[in-house]
Structures are given as structure tokens and as C-alpha cells.
Simulated scan of single mutants.
Amino acid sequence: MGIVLTISGEHGVGKSACAKLLAQTLNLKYISSGEIFRLLAREKGMTLEEFSSYVEKNPEIDREIDGETVRAAKEGNVVIDARLSAWKAREYADIKILLTAPLEVRVKRLAERDHKTYKESLEETLKRELSEKERFKKIYNIDVDDHSVFDIIINTELWSLNSVVKILKTIVEEYITSSS
């Protein structure tokens, strides 16, 4: 099957950047539920906030996106970048990683990335995260604030992207060595 790594975290922690670079560094496939979500929002001509509200009334969209996570995990040799990846791919995941950062840091990153004001990004982030928290509890009975499912938790405020990937690469290499 090959190794399966999950990377979870709130918006703006650097999940996608970290997961992409880690996948590239380890020569693994990369899948992102966030990219799928944003693509579906664009296809419907909606903002992320509008699409989040739409998805609240259409839970089959979350199930479809999360189904992609499980399919990728079953195939193996993958880094899965998804808020629920640790829960959804649990039985297939070798290492479940949670990235964190303070809200202020995350919102600043999102504002810069999306070319929005801090205030706009803060409002959007708080709404999206509340929507997700409520949806995931309702649909899957998952409490995203329960971090007990994770093997590794890293605060991305403390290190650069390259340093976080270097740390994770070392952890993965040690895992592979100790599993042999």
C-alpha cells in the first residue's frame, strides 16, 4: 500500500503549502480537500462563504469530498491535505499530523494570500470555521477540537515552511526506519 500521511488544521496554518512540499520531497501523491472545495465553489460561481452556507444544506458535498480522502488513503503513497483527513483516513493513515497557529497569524496569512483586508479575512475565517465545526459534528459526529486522534502537532508560527517540512520529513524517515 505505501505510506499515508494526513495533514489537518484550521484555515491559514499552512496545510496546503506544507503538504504539497512534503509530498514533493518524499515523492508521494498529493490530494487536497480544500482545493476540491474551492473548485466546486468556483464551478457554482460562489464565494467560499456562500459555498459553505450552500454545503450546510447539501451534506452530500462534504461526503463526496471526504470520500476522495478515503479513496486516496486506500491507494497509499499519499499526503492528504484535509481538515478531516485524520478522522476519515484513520485506519489507513500511518502518521496523522495537525498543524496549528494562533488565529491572528492565520488570518494575516489568509488576508495576504487572498488579497483581502485583515477584517474581511477574519470575518470569513470565523464564519467558515464555525460552519465546518457544526457540519462535521452533525454529519460525522466529529469534534474538530478533539486533537487526540493526531500523532504529531506542530505550531507553524514557530518555523518557516521549509523547517516544518524538514521536521516532518525526519519524522517520516524515522517512522519508516523503525517500521522495517
Rank of each mutant, 00 (worst) to 15 (best):
N155S: 03
I176Y: 04
V144H: 06
L48S: 10
L158K: 14
I154F: 05
H115Y: 09
A41K: 05
L28V: 00
S178N: 13
E10N: 14
T117S: 15
N77L: 04
K116M: 15
L110R: 12
E10K: 15
N141D: 12
R38Q: 11
R42D: 11
E104P: 05
I61Q: 01
D94I: 01
Q24M: 13
L130T: 12
S85D: 02
F37V: 06
Y54R: 08
K119S: 14
L26M: 12
E60N: 07
R71F: 10
K108G: 08
H11L: 15
E43Q: 09
K169P: 03
G14R: 04
I80M: 03
L168D: 01
H147N: 15
G45K: 02
V172C: 04
E104Y: 06
K20S: 08
V144N: 11
L99I: 01
S148Q: 08
L40P: 00
A19L: 00
N141A: 13
A19P: 09
R90N: 13
L158P: 02
E10S: 13
E123K: 13
G14N: 06
H115N: 15
V79N: 03
G14Q: 02
R135P: 08
K127A: 14
I31A: 08
V164T: 11
R135E: 11
E123F: 10
E68S: 14
I167T: 05
K29E: 13
A41N: 01
I139C: 02
L99G: 06
T125E: 07
G76L: 01
L168W: 00
N141Y: 06
A19Q: 07
R109L: 08
N155Q: 01
V70C: 05
Y118K: 05
V149E: 05
P102D: 13
K116Y: 07
S53H: 14
T177L: 15
I167H: 08
Y54G: 07
I80D: 01
N27Q: 15
V4W: 10
G67H: 04
Y118T: 09
L5Y: 09
Y118L: 11
I97H: 07
S8C: 15
R128P: 13
K133D: 12
K138Q: 07
D62W: 02
N141R: 12
S8V: 07
L21R: 13
I95V: 10
L26E: 11
E129G: 09
A17Y: 11
I61A: 02
S53P: 08
K74V: 04
M1Q: 11
V70R: 15
L22A: 11
A86L: 03
H11K: 14
G2I: 07
F37P: 05
K44L: 12
I61S: 00
S178I: 06
L126T: 05
H115D: 14
I154C: 02
V79F: 02
L130P: 05
A72I: 02
R63G: 12
D81K: 00
A89I: 00
S53R: 12
L130M: 15
L21P: 06
E10C: 12
G76E: 03
S32L: 09
R135S: 14
K96F: 00
T6K: 01
P102R: 09
M1A: 14
T156Q: 03
T6G: 13
D151S: 10
V55S: 13
